[in-house]
Structure formats: C-alpha cells, structure tokens
Design a protein around this nucleic acid. Structure first.
Length: 793
RNA sequence: ACCCGGGUGGCGAAAUCGGUAGACGCAAGGGACUUAAAAUCCCUUGAGCUUCGGCUCGUGCGGGUUCGAGUCCCGCCCCGGGUACCA
C-alpha cells in the first residue's frame, strides 16, 4: 500500500541528510542554474498559483539533472515592500516581527512540496547581509553616473498619509480608501538612467541567440520600451523663443492648425498673454490638483485653454494658436505637440470642441496634398523628405523617442533598504562609504507614514543625524528607502554566493553559474522586474563586474491558475490554499495533478475533482513495481508492440518536458502504463525507465520505488532514458483511405509501403469499393504511413 | 481603444510540419467482486439517424485557399490578461 505521507517525510529527511540537492558550486562541470521567481512571503502563505509555478520550475530542474547536469535550484524571499508594511499597519504589528513568521511558514510549505531546493543558499532581501549589497549596488550605479536626483510627481493619499504606487490608485481613488481622492505632489527622488539603455534593451530582444525568451514576454518588453521614430520640430515664437514638439508624422507638418502644451510645460507661464493669464492660471491649478492617474484614465473628455500666443509653422510660415491642455503629457516627448486634427483622433476631438480649423494634407491614396514642394509625394517619402528639409533649414531633426522613463527608486516608506546617502550642508549628497555598509534599517515602533511627504525615518533623530563622511560635521541621512524592484533586480547574482560576506557575488562562482540557464516566472513581471534586471546586468557588465550583459539566457512565462474563470485574489475571495490538498493527497499527487491540468505555459482553472486521477495512476505504478520486485512475475521477452510503445513514450516524454508541455508527458506515461497492464508485463527495464520519467513530477514516489527496486543511491543520480528511433516507428501501420477527402476506411500495411501496394490494398477493401466502384480515379494523393486520398469524378 | 493569450465532448484537455478530431484524465451509466459499502477490475460514453453494415453533422461565427483545414488567408463575435490620451 502506497502511503504518501510516510514516503514523502522519509525522502525529504534523507535529501537533507545526504545533501542530495546541494550541487558542488565550485566544481560543477555541467552547471545548470534553474531559477524561479522568488515569492513575496505573505501572511496567507503560499497559494495554489505559487505552487503551480514552483512545481513547474522544479520539474524542469529535476529533468535537467536527470539529463546529466549539476542543477542549482535556489529559493528565497522578496520580503521588503509596501505590502508587508501595509499589512503590519492593518493588523497592528510590525513588519520586522511578521516577516520571519511568514517566511517560516513559506519554508515549511516549500519543503512540503518537495522542491529540489538548495537550502544552503536561501536568502531574504530583508536580511542586512543581503541589503548591504543592495545598497552597495546603488553606490556602484551612483559612481557610474547612472543614479541621479530630480523632482517628480507622485500620487499622495491624504487618508493613508503616504505616497502610492500607480498600481494602488484605482480611477483616481485610493485602493484602500475608496472615498478618498488621490492628490499629486512633487517630491525630489532618486532615479536610475534606464532610458539610456533603451536601444540596447530593445536590440537584444531581437537576438534569439542571446535571449531565448517567451515571445509574449519579448513583445511586452518591446511595447513597454515603446520606440517611436519621428522628428523634433521647432515652431518660432516671438523674442527668439521657440516651442519644440515631437511628432511621428512629420509628413503632416502642413496640416498643423494649432499647438498644445502640457499644463506643466515651463513655457506656458512665459508666453501667456495678460488677457489669458487668469484663465490659464486657473486651468493649470486645476490640472495640478488632479492626481496622475485620473488625468490619464478617468476623465477622457478633452479640455484646454488658449494662451493668447501664436507660433510659426516653419514649413508654411502660418501663425497658429498655442493652447494648454492636459491631454498632452509633460513626461512624453517634449511636453508639447503640433496638433494635426485632420490626421489625429485626439487633436480632432479637441479641435471640434473648441472650433479650431481642420486641414487635410494626406489624401485617400496616401499622397501628400497642400504641402508645398512635398505635395504629390507618398506619405513615407514625404516623411523623410520633410526631415531632410528640417535638418537643412535648421528648424528640426529626425529623432527617436521612447516611452520608457527613467526608473524612480525612491520610496517615502519604512520597510526597505535605506538609500545610502548622507546630506551635508557643506558637501551635498555624500555616498555612505562602503566600509560603513549596511546602513541598517532601525528597528522602530513608530514606522507609520505621516502627511509630511517625508519618510518616517526622518522622525528618528538618533538615526537621522550622522557625521558627514567627508568633514565630520553634523549631517542628515537620506530618509527614503529603495524600491523592492531593486532588491529583486540582482538576487540571482547573490544566490550562488550567499556564503561570502565580503562581496556581493564571487567572480568565480558567478562565472560558473551565470547567466541563469533557465528562468521561469509569471508574465506579471514581464516588464518591470525583467527589464530592471536586464538594465542592472548591463551596468554591472560595463563596470567590469560581470562577464555577461543579459542575465537570463532562457526565460519562460508560466500560465495563470484561475478559479472559476477569474484570477485568484483576496478581494474576489477565491484564493485556494494548497495545504489541505497536500495533507489529503500528498505532494506527489498534488504536483502531478497541477502539471496535468493543462499546458504549463497556459495555466488553467483550478478544480479539485480531477485529483483522484493522478493518485490512481501512482497506485497502479506502485503495484507494478511490487510485481516487478517479485521475480516470478517478471521475465520473458517484451512483445514488439510494447517495445515500440516504450520507446515512443521516452521520445514523447522527453520532447514534451523539454517544451514544458508537462501534461502531454504525463499522458504519455499513462499510456505506457495502460499498455503494460493490458499485456500483463512488468519488465524491469521498462518499469525502471518509467520511474525515472516520473521522477521530476513525483520525486518522493520515484525515490521510494527506486529503493524498492533494489537501488541504494538517489534516483536523481540516474540518467534519463534514451530512445532508439528504429523502435519508435511501428513495423505495420494503419493508413487512412479517403475518397474525395473523406475518410472511408483504413488498411494495415507494412511500414513505408509503396503507393501502388497501398492503392491495391485500398481498392480490395469493400468499404472503399462502395465509393469508387464504377468511377474513374482521377488523382491519388499518398502520404506514406498516414493516408491515401482517391479523387474520383 | 490598443497589445498579447485563448475559444475543440458533460468537464480538464490532445492533435503545433495542412493528413484518420477527441489521445490521456475526470465525471456519468452498465456489469463483475462483496452480506454491504469503499477500493479494484471489465464495458459504454461528441450529436443525430440507422435495416446495427453503416450514414450525416461536428473544433466560437461568416467567407476563402486546398484532393484534404482545429491547423493557412480575409472579415467578425466572445472570454482571460496586460497597457492606458505616447503625439
């Protein structure tokens, strides 16, 4: 009788004892770094979605190990961040108290699922031994000129008395206070120059030799970076000033009938005429009061106000009015546009509302009209011709614009790594000397944010005031902490080197294990986390600290586990916790069930009705192993059809697992078991291969079976079975016989039988005869070993 | 609105090179074993018709290409996820 709880506990203990999952990090000849996205250790514990993702990644790691690699499969915890902090506030506790308990619970669950984790290298981003190096990384970027400070707009919730991330603002209201409108505040923040890398981040995506990534993820990154080719054009104002705009449609330059500046545009104040001053002032004040999100999302109706100023179109010399409107964003392009209502929907909407003229300059055939010397050209030609003209006349130039902004890493919060900077009246922003790292996050009870817009750390004077590292006079610490995305942008570098406390990552270890061989994670991180990690790797590469500049050689996005057709979330109340299933069915059955429910890269709907299927399957295999152990049941020659099935199964399972189609691999194994049972065969060699193929899915079960079969060492030191192509193809094949494309019969013929033989066999068949008798066969299509199609007239 | 996925039996799905649609599993029905139940084993299971040999229809909808389309092309509809006035 197979007892999962006993078997699983036994093997988990044995793996720990024997160091089964601990590769030789300094000597591995065929290193394989199998990485999964580390979890945020929530109070609720691991949910089914995490379990699905981790199991899928673990299956892959175990498979690669059986293929002869030394697999390093680490795990850790992404435990800093606003989520933990908000949760602590809600339950009246402290994140530093809650997180260890959450991590302990996660660790228990991860061990229970039987992951091939190397626990020697567990890490938590909240550990000073970790964030010391996150701070060090910040200093490296600062040193390299990749970090800078500037004023930027943030979302502010007056009720929470804190800054909110864009994701926490729902239609202009606070996520936690649906009655409270979010405001906009401008604060000075630290940024990383990721936009300097836009081109390289984009170029590598097009190089599959360097980056073997899920196509969906590549597309998401491409869209996020948002490269647009176009031109910057200068429209002259009076007094030697001009307005520069960005457009992707320089070919429509003659159709510009007005201009629009973003309300924050610095020129607005200067150019507004006295008559329009009050109206413009009021409009700008109203725009500033609106939060960032509702400006973009909530109120779609265009509004604006005339500045009273006019600017000159460099192409035709026409003076056109300059307006201010909040549909133009300061963050993109130059913060100002030339409006071409004839060829832009938004401009048209605005023109219609304010009665501005509309002048078409491209006809239905895509040809330029009313465009001076450029008339008659096709738009594409016109585009480059106009750019050339702009450049020669000094009124503009071709430029490339990106949607990607620099990365703001400042958070006016408590639960994160303090940014290692000290402000001195004399010396300005001074980096904390490396020897003084880490800047410890003080353990304070009063960590709640207030409405000052300044981090709670500023209230703790004993921490806040420090001597300036340069002159020793009283100076102040930076009170912002860094974004959690910075923690996770380099954690893969830390894993192999957690045993070094004098360096972030050891050069030799890193060379052996990085870049990560295969990274598996959710597509919700397709953009930010994966893009930030790539950026950090590029900077480290430039600094000569790593030998590679793309951190993840292969990335696969797993699917989403949904419940009742919708994403699992606390607010929907449909989150499924795996513990009850682990307790009832055991880890192996549960793993197998999760991997069988659909293609790993697509995910699926979680319903527990199917759980008994994989369990029954394991029971059957268990019984088969029992038969195999009793000598009298075994022996004799394995029938040819079974040999074929066996080799076919090895082939199918190997290819399916390689492609992450785990459900198909399991189905193939099930078919083999059905065939063996039907033939009452329990050939030892076949059964052993079967157990090895099941090992990635049901590791404890496989180990136990392996031991019962008389082996003393772990099954994971075995080698994955090979198949022999000559056995994969059956000696006799069934060929479909179609008449006019419809299958009417089948004939059994020898493999690779010639067309004439198959036609003869088909015509001899009564079922086929009924459809061809008395008719002329005008055409025959023969696909060897598959089908014969007779076209009759 | 845009960008990705996806739509196949009662259900999860398979068929990824245009070649026998529904493998594998769940659920359901029938039978065997059993005092009984559970477990296990065997059979049936896309729909409709049938003289039980088969026939017709069938992969979201409408067209098309092809000897042949779940698969390719054109035009839609629906579901899930992401992004949000990007000039």
């Amino acid at each position: 009788m197979y007892q999962p709880d006993v078997v699983e506990a036994k093997w988990q203990a044995r793996w720990a004892e024997r160091g089964t999952n601990e590769p030789d990090l300094d000597g591995a000849a065929r290193p394989f770094y199998n990485l999964m996205m580390f979890p945020y250790p929530s109070a609720e514990g691991l949910h089914v979605g995490n379990m699905f993702a981790f199991t899928g990644s673990d299956v892959y790691g175990r498979f690669q190990r059986l293929r002869g690699h030394q697999v390093f499969e680490p795990i850790g915890f992404d435990a800093f961040g606003i989520h933990s902090e908000n949760f602590a506030i809600k339950v009246g506790s402290h994140p530093a108290r809650l997180i260890p308990a959450n991590i302990a619970n996660f660790r228990r669950q991860l061990q229970r699922m039987g992951g091939m984790f190397d626990w020697r290298h567990e890490l938590s981003t909240t550990d000073p031994a970790y964030y010391k190096w996150t701070q060090w990384l910040f200093l490296k970027l600062l040193e390299a000129g990749k970090a800078y400070k500037k004023y930027a707009a943030v979302n502010w919730c007056p009720e929470c008395k804190t800054v909110l991330a864009n994701e926490q603002v729902i239609n202009g209201f606070c996520e936690r206070h649906p009655e409270t409108r979010v405001e906009q505040r401008t604060l000075e923040q630290w940024f990383f120059r990721i936009s300097d890398y836009a081109d390289r981040l984009l170029a590598d995506l097009d190089d599959p030799g360097r980056m073997d990534w899920s196509e969906t993820t590549v597309t998401a990154q491409r869209n996020w970076i948002g490269r647009s080719e176009g031109a910057e054009i200068e429209f002259a104002l009076d007094h030697n000033r001009d307005i520069t705009v960005f457009t992707t449609r320089p070919d429509t330059l003659y159709g510009a009938t007005f201009m629009v500046l973003a309300p924050e545009h610095p020129l607005v104040g200067e150019i507004t005429t006295p008559a329009q001053h009050d109206a413009v002032h009021a409009y700008r004040a109203a725009a500033a009061a609106k939060d960032l999100i509702s400006r973009r999302v909530g109120e779609r109706e265009k509004s604006g106000v005339f500045t009273g100023a006019f600017a000159k179109n460099p192409a035709n010399g026409r003076m056109i009015p300059v307006w201010v409107a909040d549909y133009v964003l300061m963050e993109y392009g130059t913060g100002g546009i030339m409006a071409v209502p004839a060829h832009d929907e938004r401009d048209l909407e605005f023109a219609t509302r304010y009665g501005l003229p509309v002048v078409p300059v491209v006809d239905e055939g895509g040809m330029l009209i009313g465009s001076g010397e450029f008339s008659g050209m096709l738009a594409d030609q016109g585009r480059s011709a106009i750019i050339r003209w702009l450049e020669s006349s000094g009124t503009g130039k071709g430029v490339i614009q990106y949607r990607l902004h620099d990365w703001c890493i400042s958070r006016q919060r408590y639960w994160g790594p303090p940014i290692p900077i000290i402000y001195c009246d004399e010396h300005g922003a001074v980096p904390v000397p490396e020897a003084d790292l880490p800047v410890l996050l003080p353990d304070i009870e009063d960590f709640r944010p207030d409405d000052s817009g300044i981090s709670p750390l500023a209230r703790h004077e004993e921490w806040y005031y420090v001597p300036c590292p340069v002159c020793g006079t009283r100076a102040r610490r930076e009170t912002d902490v860094s974004d959690t995305f910075l923690d996770s942008a380099w954690y893969y570098l830390r894993y192999p080197s957690t045993d070094f406390d004098d360096r972030a990552f050891d050069a030799e270890r890193t060379r052996r294990w990085c870049p990560v061989t295969t990274y598996i994670g959710g597509n919700e991180h397709a953009v930010l986390h994966l893009l930030y990690s790539r950026f950090i790797a590029m900077v480290l590469h430039e600094l000569g600290l790593v030998t590679f500049d793309e951190p993840f050689a292969r990335f696969r996005a797993h699917g989403l586990i949904v419940k009742d057709g919708a994403k699992m979330s606390k607010s929907r109340g449909n989150v499924v916790v795996p513990d009850q299933y682990l307790a009832r069915w055991g880890a192996d059955t549960f793993r197998m069930y999760l991997m069988f429910l659909g293609p790993f890269q697509e995910g699926g709907d979680f319903r527990d009705e199917g759980m008994s299927g994989p369990r029954r399957f394991l029971d059957k295999v268990w019984a088969m192993v029992g038969d195999c152990v009793r000598e009298d049941m075994c022996g004799g020659e394995v029938r040819r059809e079974l040999v074929v099935k066996w080799h076919q199964t090895v082939k199918r399972a190997t290819e399916a697992i390689g492609a992450l189609r785990y459900n198909s691999a399991i189905a193939a194994c099930m078919e083999l078991v059905n065939a063996l049972r039907e033939a009452r065969c329990c050939d030892r060699q076949v059964v052993q291969d079967l157990i090895v193929m099941l090992a990635p899915f049901a590791p404890h079960f496989a180990e136990e079976c392996w031991e019962r079969l008389g082996h003393a060492t772990t099954i994971f030191d075995e080698l994955w079975p090979e198949w022999d192509e000559q056995f994969v193809v059956e000696s006799r094949v069934e060929v479909a016989v179609q008449v006019n494309g419809r299958t009417r019969s089948t004939v059994i013929v020898g493999r690779d039988a010639g067309e004439d033989a198959v036609v003869a066999a088909a015509l001899a068949d009564a079922a086929t005869q009924r459809f061809v008798a008395g008719k002329e066969v005008r055409k025959r299509i023969y696909v060897p070993n598959r089908l014969l199609n007779l076209v009759v007239g």
